[in-house]
Design a protein around this nucleic acid. Structure first.
Length: 283
DNA sequence: CACCATGTTCCTTG
DNA sequence: CCAAGGAACATGGT
Protein backbone atom coordinates (compact mmCIF):
# COMPACT_ATOMS: atom_id res chain seq x y z
CA UNK A 1 0.00 0.00 0.00
CA UNK A 2 2.86 2.35 -0.23
CA UNK A 3 3.25 5.73 -1.97
CA UNK A 4 2.38 9.09 -0.43
CA UNK A 5 -1.35 9.08 -1.22
CA UNK A 6 -1.90 5.61 0.19
CA UNK A 7 -0.03 6.50 3.36
CA UNK A 8 -2.01 9.72 3.70
CA UNK A 9 -5.27 7.83 3.33
CA UNK A 10 -4.13 5.31 5.91
CA UNK A 11 -3.14 8.04 8.36
CA UNK A 12 -6.57 9.63 8.02
CA UNK A 13 -8.19 6.30 8.74
CA UNK A 14 -5.98 5.51 11.71
CA UNK A 15 -5.84 8.91 13.40
CA UNK A 16 -9.33 9.02 14.91
CA UNK A 17 -9.10 5.36 15.86
CA UNK A 18 -5.74 5.61 17.61
CA UNK A 19 -5.36 9.06 19.14
CA UNK A 20 -6.12 8.93 22.85
CA UNK A 21 -5.84 5.14 23.05
CA UNK A 22 -3.39 3.34 25.31
CA UNK A 23 -1.19 0.54 24.09
CA UNK A 24 -1.76 -2.19 26.65
CA UNK A 25 0.21 -4.95 25.06
CA UNK A 26 2.69 -5.46 22.26
CA UNK A 27 3.30 -8.72 20.46
CA UNK A 28 6.15 -8.80 17.97
CA UNK A 29 5.66 -11.82 15.76
CA UNK A 30 8.54 -11.05 13.43
CA UNK A 31 11.61 -9.56 15.04
CA UNK A 32 12.77 -8.22 11.70
CA UNK A 33 9.84 -5.80 11.66
CA UNK A 34 11.19 -3.74 14.56
CA UNK A 35 14.88 -3.70 13.75
CA UNK A 36 17.27 -2.46 14.90
CA UNK A 37 15.48 -2.81 18.26
CA UNK A 38 15.04 -6.29 19.59
CA UNK A 39 11.48 -7.47 20.05
CA UNK A 40 11.86 -7.07 23.80
CA UNK A 41 13.29 -3.55 23.65
CA UNK A 42 10.57 -2.48 21.27
CA UNK A 43 7.74 -3.90 23.32
CA UNK A 44 9.10 -2.40 26.55
CA UNK A 45 9.46 1.02 24.97
CA UNK A 46 5.94 1.14 23.62
CA UNK A 47 3.86 -0.75 26.17
CA UNK A 48 1.74 1.46 28.38
CA UNK A 49 2.10 4.55 26.22
CA UNK A 50 -0.78 6.69 25.06
CA UNK A 51 -0.98 7.58 21.39
CA UNK A 52 -1.05 11.36 21.11
CA UNK A 53 -0.72 11.97 17.39
CA UNK A 54 -0.72 10.14 14.08
CA UNK A 55 0.91 11.92 11.17
CA UNK A 56 2.52 11.38 7.79
CA UNK A 57 5.88 12.51 6.47
CA UNK A 58 6.64 11.34 2.94
CA UNK A 59 5.85 7.61 3.00
CA UNK A 60 6.35 7.30 6.74
CA UNK A 61 3.66 7.09 9.37
CA UNK A 62 4.67 9.02 12.47
CA UNK A 63 3.18 8.16 15.86
CA UNK A 64 3.70 10.31 18.93
CA UNK A 65 3.56 8.30 22.10
CA UNK A 66 3.36 9.70 25.63
CA UNK A 67 4.90 7.49 28.26
CA UNK A 68 2.88 6.34 31.26
CA UNK A 69 3.93 9.04 33.70
CA UNK A 70 3.52 11.61 30.97
CA UNK A 71 7.27 11.98 31.16
CA UNK A 72 8.48 12.33 27.60
CA UNK A 73 7.13 11.97 24.12
CA UNK A 74 8.51 9.12 22.12
CA UNK A 75 8.20 8.87 18.37
CA UNK A 76 7.46 5.68 16.52
CA UNK A 77 7.86 5.53 12.76
CA UNK A 78 6.17 3.08 10.45
CA UNK A 79 7.05 2.33 6.84
CA UNK A 80 4.91 0.01 4.75
CA UNK A 81 7.59 -1.08 2.32
CA UNK A 82 5.91 -2.68 -0.64
CA UNK A 83 3.09 -4.66 0.95
CA UNK A 84 2.56 -3.33 4.46
CA UNK A 85 -0.91 -2.69 5.85
CA UNK A 86 -2.28 -1.40 9.13
CA UNK A 87 -5.76 -1.69 10.52
CA UNK A 88 -7.80 -2.15 13.64
CA UNK A 89 -9.74 -5.28 14.30
CA UNK A 90 -11.52 -7.01 17.15
CA UNK A 91 -9.19 -8.63 19.62
CA UNK A 92 -10.66 -12.08 19.10
CA UNK A 93 -10.58 -11.84 15.32
CA UNK A 94 -8.56 -14.59 13.61
CA UNK A 95 -5.10 -13.33 12.81
CA UNK A 96 -3.94 -12.95 9.21
CA UNK A 97 -1.01 -14.95 7.92
CA UNK A 98 1.72 -12.32 7.71
CA UNK A 99 1.10 -10.23 10.77
CA UNK A 100 4.33 -8.69 12.07
CA UNK A 101 3.22 -6.72 15.13
CA UNK A 102 0.01 -6.53 17.18
CA UNK A 103 -0.63 -3.63 19.57
CA UNK A 104 -3.37 -4.49 22.02
CA UNK A 105 -5.61 -1.50 22.73
CA UNK A 106 -8.22 -3.22 24.87
CA UNK A 107 -11.36 -3.98 22.88
CA UNK A 108 -9.42 -4.20 19.67
CA UNK A 109 -5.98 -4.66 18.21
CA UNK A 110 -3.95 -2.35 16.03
CA UNK A 111 -2.34 -4.70 13.52
CA UNK A 112 0.70 -4.25 11.28
CA UNK A 113 0.80 -6.86 8.55
CA UNK A 114 3.44 -7.18 5.82
CA UNK A 115 3.82 -10.28 3.63
CA UNK A 116 7.08 -9.28 1.99
CA UNK A 117 8.47 -7.69 5.14
CA UNK A 118 10.17 -4.83 3.36
CA UNK A 119 8.57 -2.37 5.74
CA UNK A 120 8.98 -1.98 9.46
CA UNK A 121 8.44 0.02 12.61
CA UNK A 122 11.16 1.72 14.54
CA UNK A 123 11.70 3.87 17.57
CA UNK A 124 12.90 7.41 16.99
CA UNK A 125 12.66 9.52 13.89
CA UNK A 126 16.17 9.49 12.50
CA UNK A 127 14.81 8.27 9.22
CA UNK A 128 13.11 11.58 8.56
CA UNK A 129 16.38 13.44 8.67
CA UNK A 130 17.44 13.14 5.07
CA UNK A 131 14.09 13.44 3.36
CA UNK A 132 13.58 16.02 0.65
CA UNK A 133 10.69 18.36 -0.05
CA UNK A 134 7.19 17.40 0.98
CA UNK A 135 5.31 17.67 -2.31
CA UNK A 136 2.00 18.82 -0.84
CA UNK A 137 3.61 21.39 1.44
CA UNK A 138 2.42 24.75 0.13
CA UNK A 139 5.29 26.66 1.66
CA UNK A 140 7.95 25.16 -0.60
CA UNK A 141 9.02 27.61 -3.26
CA UNK A 142 9.52 27.45 -6.98
CA UNK A 143 13.20 28.16 -6.46
CA UNK A 144 13.60 25.26 -4.04
CA UNK A 145 12.13 22.86 -6.56
CA UNK A 146 14.27 24.14 -9.38
CA UNK A 147 17.39 23.91 -7.23
CA UNK A 148 16.61 20.29 -6.40
CA UNK A 149 16.46 19.35 -10.05
CA UNK A 150 19.17 21.59 -11.46
CA UNK A 151 22.62 20.26 -12.21
CA UNK A 152 21.65 16.60 -12.19
CA UNK A 153 22.21 14.50 -15.30
CA UNK A 154 19.93 11.81 -13.97
CA UNK A 155 16.70 11.07 -15.81
CA UNK A 156 13.99 13.24 -14.31
CA UNK A 157 11.97 10.18 -13.31
CA UNK A 158 14.86 8.74 -11.32
CA UNK A 159 15.32 12.12 -9.67
CA UNK A 160 11.66 12.28 -8.69
CA UNK A 161 11.94 8.93 -6.97
CA UNK A 162 14.97 9.97 -4.93
CA UNK A 163 13.49 10.49 -1.47
CA UNK A 164 16.23 12.93 -0.50
CA UNK A 165 15.15 15.22 -3.31
CA UNK A 166 11.35 15.05 -3.19
CA UNK A 167 9.84 12.76 -0.61
CA UNK A 168 6.82 10.59 -1.22
CA UNK A 169 6.71 9.80 -4.91
CA UNK A 170 7.20 6.18 -5.88
CA UNK A 171 7.23 4.28 -9.13
CA UNK A 172 3.55 4.72 -9.96
CA UNK A 173 3.10 8.40 -9.25
CA UNK A 174 6.45 9.42 -10.74
CA UNK A 175 5.24 8.07 -14.10
CA UNK A 176 1.79 9.55 -13.62
CA UNK A 177 3.07 13.01 -12.70
CA UNK A 178 5.42 13.16 -15.69
CA UNK A 179 2.58 12.25 -17.99
CA UNK A 180 0.37 14.90 -16.44
CA UNK A 181 3.17 17.44 -16.98
CA UNK A 182 3.85 16.30 -20.54
CA UNK A 183 7.52 15.59 -19.81
CA UNK A 184 9.34 12.47 -20.98
CA UNK A 185 10.74 10.41 -18.08
CA UNK A 186 14.20 9.95 -19.58
CA UNK A 187 14.91 13.68 -19.89
CA UNK A 188 17.98 14.85 -17.98
CA UNK A 189 16.80 16.64 -14.87
CA UNK A 190 19.06 19.60 -15.57
CA UNK A 191 17.55 20.08 -19.01
CA UNK A 192 14.14 21.12 -17.69
CA UNK A 193 13.22 24.73 -18.35
CA UNK A 194 11.74 26.89 -15.62
CA UNK A 195 8.35 26.53 -17.20
CA UNK A 196 8.65 22.75 -17.16
CA UNK A 197 9.66 22.68 -13.51
CA UNK A 198 6.59 24.75 -12.75
CA UNK A 199 4.36 22.40 -14.71
CA UNK A 200 5.91 19.35 -13.09
CA UNK A 201 5.49 20.69 -9.61
CA UNK A 202 1.85 21.42 -10.30
CA UNK A 203 1.35 18.02 -11.93
CA UNK A 204 2.83 16.22 -8.94
CA UNK A 205 0.49 18.03 -6.64
CA UNK A 206 -2.53 17.32 -8.80
CA UNK A 207 -1.77 13.65 -9.25
CA UNK A 208 -1.19 13.08 -5.55
CA UNK A 209 -4.24 15.05 -4.48
CA UNK A 210 -6.43 13.28 -7.00
CA UNK A 211 -5.25 9.91 -5.68
CA UNK A 212 -5.99 10.96 -2.12
CA UNK A 213 -9.47 12.11 -3.14
CA UNK A 214 -10.17 8.87 -4.98
CA UNK A 215 -9.01 6.71 -2.11
CA UNK A 216 -10.85 8.79 0.45
CA UNK A 217 -14.16 8.39 -1.31
CA UNK A 218 -13.78 4.74 -2.22
CA UNK A 219 -15.04 3.22 1.02
CA UNK A 220 -11.89 1.24 1.60
CA UNK A 221 -11.79 -1.95 3.58
CA UNK A 222 -8.47 -1.66 5.37
CA UNK A 223 -8.76 -4.89 7.29
CA UNK A 224 -10.33 -6.89 4.49
CA UNK A 225 -8.60 -9.63 2.55
CA UNK A 226 -7.46 -7.44 -0.35
CA UNK A 227 -9.38 -8.65 -3.33
CA UNK A 228 -8.94 -5.34 -5.03
CA UNK A 229 -6.19 -3.80 -7.07
CA UNK A 230 -3.40 -4.25 -4.61
CA UNK A 231 -3.29 -0.55 -3.87
CA UNK A 232 -6.43 -0.09 -1.96
CA UNK A 233 -8.38 -2.89 -0.54
CA UNK A 234 -11.50 -2.60 -2.58
CA UNK A 235 -13.89 -5.39 -2.74
CA UNK A 236 -14.78 -5.22 -6.40
CA UNK A 237 -18.10 -6.49 -7.65
CA UNK A 238 -18.17 -8.61 -10.82
CA UNK A 239 -18.31 -6.48 -13.94
CA UNK A 240 -17.19 -3.34 -12.14
CA UNK A 241 -14.52 -1.22 -13.74
CA UNK A 242 -10.96 -2.03 -12.94
CA UNK A 243 -9.87 0.63 -10.44
CA UNK A 244 -6.34 0.65 -11.84
CA UNK A 245 -7.66 1.42 -15.30
CA UNK A 246 -9.73 4.20 -13.87
CA UNK A 247 -7.03 5.77 -11.78
CA UNK A 248 -3.89 5.54 -13.88
CA UNK A 249 -3.21 7.28 -17.15
CA UNK A 250 0.01 5.46 -18.01
CA UNK A 251 1.13 3.13 -15.23
CA UNK A 252 0.77 -0.52 -16.25
CA UNK A 253 -0.92 0.50 -19.52
CA UNK A 254 1.78 -0.55 -21.97
CA UNK A 255 0.50 -0.78 -25.54
CA UNK A 256 -2.73 1.01 -24.78
CA UNK A 257 -3.85 4.37 -26.11
CA UNK A 258 -3.26 7.58 -24.22
CA UNK A 259 -6.50 9.10 -23.01
CA UNK A 260 -5.24 12.58 -23.77
CA UNK A 261 -3.72 12.27 -27.24
CA UNK A 262 -4.41 8.68 -28.34
CA UNK A 263 -0.65 8.10 -28.61
CA UNK A 264 0.92 4.76 -27.71
CA UNK A 265 1.90 4.12 -24.13
CA UNK A 266 5.32 2.52 -23.92
CA UNK A 267 7.23 0.79 -21.17
CA UNK A 268 10.90 1.43 -20.55
CA UNK A 269 13.27 0.80 -17.66
CA UNK A 270 14.86 3.65 -15.72
CA UNK A 271 16.79 3.16 -12.54
CA UNK A 272 15.86 -0.49 -12.76
CA UNK A 273 12.15 0.21 -12.53
CA UNK A 274 9.35 -0.11 -15.06
CA UNK A 275 8.49 3.28 -16.44
CA UNK A 276 5.43 4.15 -18.48
CA UNK A 277 4.98 7.13 -20.74
CA UNK A 278 3.06 8.30 -23.77
CA UNK A 279 5.01 8.71 -26.98
CA UNK A 280 2.62 11.33 -28.23
CA UNK A 281 2.34 13.91 -25.50
CA UNK A 282 5.48 13.60 -23.39
CA UNK A 283 8.63 15.29 -24.53
C1' DC B 1 9.25 -22.92 -14.30
C1' DA B 2 9.64 -17.82 -15.62
C1' DC B 3 8.81 -13.15 -14.72
C1' DC B 4 6.77 -9.31 -12.45
C1' DA B 5 5.49 -6.36 -8.29
C1' DT B 6 3.54 0.41 -4.81
C1' DG B 7 10.57 0.28 -1.58
C1' DT B 8 15.01 0.84 0.45
C1' DT B 9 19.77 -0.28 1.30
C1' DC B 10 24.13 -1.93 0.26
C1' DC B 11 27.81 -2.97 -2.81
C1' DT B 12 30.58 -2.71 -6.98
C1' DT B 13 32.09 -0.47 -11.00
C1' DG B 14 33.10 3.47 -13.84
C1' DC C 1 32.33 13.18 -5.11
C1' DC C 2 28.59 11.48 -8.52
C1' DA C 3 26.11 8.05 -11.21
C1' DA C 4 24.61 3.56 -12.81
C1' DG C 5 23.58 -1.07 -12.23
C1' DG C 6 22.73 -5.09 -9.68
C1' DA C 7 21.61 -7.80 -5.79
C1' DA C 8 19.37 -8.46 -1.68
C1' DC C 9 15.37 -8.66 1.31
C1' DA C 10 10.51 -12.40 1.13
C1' DT C 11 6.18 -13.48 -0.75
C1' DG C 12 2.50 -13.76 -4.00
C1' DG C 13 0.24 -13.21 -8.58
C1' DT C 14 -0.03 -14.32 -13.45
Amino acid sequence: MPELPEVEILVRYLRPLLVGRRIRSVVVLRAKAVRPSTAGEFADAVRGAEIRAVERRAKYLRFELAAVGGAGVRVLLGHLGMTGRMYLQAQDHPRARHVSVVFGLGEDDWVYEDPRQFGGMRLGEDRLQDLGLEPLEESTTEAEWAARLAGSRQPIKVRLMDQSVIAGLGNIYASEALHEAGIAPHREARSLKGEEVRRLRRAIREVLEAAIRTGSSAGLDFAGRGMGDGLFYFGRSPGALDPVEERFRVYDREGQACRRCSGRIVRSVLGGRSTYSCQGCQR
